[in-house]
Amino acid sequence: MNLEQFFIAMAVAILFLMLCNLYRVVAGPTVIDRMLGMNVIGTKTTVLIVLIGVIDGRVDLFIDITLAYALLNFITTLAAARFYQRLAQPIPPEPRESLVAPSAGPDVEEADVTAAATDPSRKETP
């Protein structure tokens, strides 16, 4: 039994279904949908490369390309997901410098220190 025709048919079918997935990448309502579609397409590309190697008769050459592609796809998806997750975080407030030292006693109010620092009579000349 010759399986060459069968593998070619499988590769063409995978290619067609990847094109169908491309619809979600183009018309996805949010950017996360596009990331999901690209993840599925990238995972299927590994299968497609292996099938091309089988058809070509040199699987041992194509298998390393497949491994590198799978690694790259995973890293790309993780990077994009982390980027958009960080983008959705609320911006933290600006850190405010305290005028009172942490070692100061509880009787020292911060308002007193502020008034003393802005007192014009105590301004020193440089």
Binding site: V31, T43, L67, A70, N73, F74, T77, A81, R82, A88
Partner: peptide
Amino acid sequence: LLLIVFYIFIASPTATHAIIDAGYEF
């Protein structure tokens, strides 16, 4: 090829989890 299968079986759900985590935060 078996190593690739093993890797994809671990990495693809991890990537999906990262995507849905980003979508939930988004």
